[in-house]
Design a binder for these strands. Structure first.
Length: 672
DNA sequence: ACTAATGTCCTTTTT
DNA sequence: GGACATTAGT
């Protein structure tokens, strides 16, 4: 039966992981705790999908299965594949409980809102909203105008979040991750106290609250039992990137580990900054006495790529050792390309990308990866100049654009009248209303007991719009359109590039049409915003070909035929902020590993000799000489073809260069 | 009281 | 080059 339905195509290890468990005497399928260590490109998604399919075929009801993934897209992909593998009987199967920790938490909280003292229409704050709320308290406490600079709102939120997710002391968070803020411990405590109060008063939950509320529900005897009893099997993808709060939730769902499957790769743990701890996956085996299955056969990359990746990870400590072996065969050696600077780097990548396209590799099978979002700036200029379409993932988000925030603020306020942040933003859209006017209008509205009929913003049309939106009798369909119609002239008055922005609003309307309710729309958008920015000239139509630009973090789980990694030098890999901290350095190494293992056949590591410092540079010198990445040890470079590229000409490393060496600048640089 | 213009200081990665 | 505070102009 296996060969026909795909199980026959799994290798032995994959099949072992997919089918682990057995029916017991009562005919019920049971499985003990299982840890699948899945190296990059070893068919993890496929294996997990097969496991889900196996469970279904063994009689587990789809709604008795909880599948936790890192993104919603991963959940959809998994569901689709599992349904296909499971065969005819399950072709139409949907997994009602598949999603991220945060989205599942949201659903559970909505379901039990009354027992948590929340109204049905609580708001989920996205990052920006949470930071704005933090800023309100920051101002109130007078921290915004101290002689010595207090951390900014985003930093405050990051500290708060880190502490919540690590479940440790604030002092530990500060010492660990924010040493430059350590002196503000007392003030930060006051700030966070105020922030929590504000959230409660506004009926608003931030990302961390979703997890905190879930755990609180699990800690309640009756409710916790009720929730744990919902599922027989819990499967967690990307387990290496869970934090201790998430681990605690899992423990309470499946205290013995019975029915619990976790899948991940400790070598790809790259979310420590978000308080994920690789300890979770490293200690899972001991904690639960789990069966461990390791996948090492790599179906993605050629051996040349894997040799470099293996060599890189061999130098790391504390891990489940694995040697990735290519099923696809040898392939060319990855290249380490030295270029003069940013501009040369961009020119090199463009030249190579086009060359590849000539060879028949379409643009969208090629990706440029980088450590931080702005590293692609120069390249983007070059791409626009040369008229090459691209899409960028990671970095600046759709939701951070002012006009998108404006439009959403109207809906958010209508959805939850107490949402002060949304109200504040919405009211100031009225011409002639600024901070003071907004404050006045909101206070009066609050005093009236949140009655929309009493709202006096200064514009009758605005008042009418809000009352209409907030009226429970108003159907969701058409609300976004009406918002857009009211808002468009406001936008045209305030911002330039109005046509590009108008396009974003149309896209918003398109998304709105796919969701059944306003609450679903707002929550979805907060929890799973569109990943790519399309604010640049090249907005690829669907039938066109486009190059992919992505941060390494956003490239997780993906693969491309050709991959180019930018700025592979000290300062980026590893990031300058990781210097001197062993644990952070290890994460940086894993980040480079993730970047490398995205490549199927062709991998170029590009290393500029000199790069420009945009921020934080003291006056004067605007560039810095990047040292070779410390991860490129002899053991690693031995597997690389080293090349120097200048002015479109390529020569092997070590050959004499034509350009003069700027020794004077180097000498000065040492003392600047 | 609102808006526009100027000045100062910057920790990356994101559910 | 962007966020945020402060100042000047309406």
């Amino acid at each position: 039966m296996d060969a026909a339905d795909g199980f026959g195509r799994l290798n032995d290890r994959q099949r072992e992981a997919a089918t682990f468990g057995a029916r017991t005497g009562d005919g019920v399928f049971r499985a003990g705790p299982l840890l699948v260590i899945a190296g990059a490109g070893t068919g993890k998604t496929n294996t997990l999908a097969h496991r889900v399919a196996h469970l279904l075929r063994e009689g587990v009801a789809p709604e008795r299965l909880l599948l936790l993934t890192f993104t919603r897209r991963a959940a959809e992909e998994m569901t689709r594949r599992a349904a296909r593998v499971a065969g005819a009987a399950h072709r139409a199967v949907r997994l009602p409980w598949a999603g991220t920790f945060h989205s599942v938490a949201n659903r559970l909280i909505r379901r039990h809102h009354a027992r948590l003292g929340l109204p049905e229409s609580f708001s989920v704050l996205d990052r920006g909203d949470a930071a704005d709320l933090m800023d309100v308290v920051r101002h109130e406490l007078g921290f915004s105008k101290l002689e010595k600079r207090f951390p900014r709102k985003d930093t405050c939120l990051a500290i708060y979040s880190h502490r919540v997710n690590t479940q440790g002391e604030l002092a530990a968070t500060l010492a660990d991750a924010f040493p430059w803020c350590a002196e503000w411990e007392a003030e930060l405590t006051r700030l966070f106290r105020g922030y929590v109060e504000r959230k409660l008063a506004n009926h608003a939950l931030d990302y961390d609250d979703l997890l905190l509320y879930w755990r609180a529900m699990m800690e309640d005897g009756a409710l916790g039992g009720e929730i744990a009893a919902l599922w027989d099997h819990v499967l967690v993808d990307e387990y290496q990137d869970t934090n201790s709060l998430q681990a605690e939730i899992l423990e309470r769902l499946k205290p013995s580990g019975e029915g619990l499957t976790v899948v991940g790769d400790d070598a790809q743990a790259i979310y420590a900054f978000r308080a994920a701890t690789v300890e979770n996956i490293l200690s899972f085996e001991r904690r639960f006495g789990a069966r461990v299955v390791t996948l090492e056969a790599n179906y993605r990359s050629t051996q040349g790529v894997l040799d470099v990746a293996n060599a890189l990870m061999r130098e790391s400590r504390r891990q489940y050792r694995k040697e990735l072996a290519a099923v696809r065969g040898e392939g060319p050696r990855p290249r380490l390309v030295t270029v003069a600077d940013d501009r040369a780097q961009a020119q090199y990548v463009v030249a190579r990308v086009l060359e590849r396209r000539e060879e028949g590799v379409p643009l969208r099978h090629q990706a440029v990866l980088f450590r931080s979002s702005h590293h692609s700036d120069v390249l983007e200029l070059e791409l626009v100049r040369r008229d090459i379409p691209y899409v960028k993932y990671g970095g600046l988000k759709f939701l951070e654009a002012a006009h998108v925030k404006d439009a959403l603020a109207l809906l958010r306020w209508a959805d939850n009248p107490r949402n002060r942040i949304a109200a504040w933003r919405a009211l100031q859209l009225v011409p002639g209303t600024g901070p003071k006017g907004a404050e006045r209008a909101f206070t009066a509205f609050e005093a009236s007991g949140w009655r929309w009929a009493v709202l006096k913003s200064g514009s009758r049309e605005f008042d009418a719009l809000m009352a209409w939106l907030a009226d429970p009798a108003t159907p969701w369909a058409g609300q976004m359109q009406r918002v857009r119609e009211w808002y468009t002239p406001v936008m045209e008055r305030r911002y330039d590039a109005a046509d590009v922005r108008a396009g974003d609003l149309v896209q918003l309307e398109r998304i709105a049409a796919t969701l059944a309710t306003r609450e679903a729309f707002l929550t979805e958008l907060a929890l799973d915003p569109p990943a790519a920015t399309s604010d640049l000239a090249a907005d690829p139509a669907l039938d066109e070909d486009w190059l992919v630009l992505s941060t390494v973090h956003s490239a997780k789980g993906q693969e491309w035929e050709a991959v180019y990694v930018l700025n592979v030098s000290d300062g980026s890999f590893p990031s300058e902020y990781a210097a001197g901290r062993a644990d952070l350095l290890e994460e940086e190494r894993r980040l480079l590993y993730v970047a490398m293992t995205r490549a199927r056949s062709s991998l170029d590591l590009v290393a500029p000799l000199k790069y420009y410092v945009t921020a934080q540079s003291r006056m004067g010198d605007r560039h810095v000489y990047g040292a070779r990445s410390r991860f490129l040890t002899p053991a690693v470079t031995r597997r690389l073809e080293e090349v120097v590229w200048a002015e479109g000409i390529e020569r092997p490393a070590g050959a004499p260069a034509g350009a003069p060496v700027d020794i004077a600048a180097r000498l000065r640089q040492m003392w600047s």
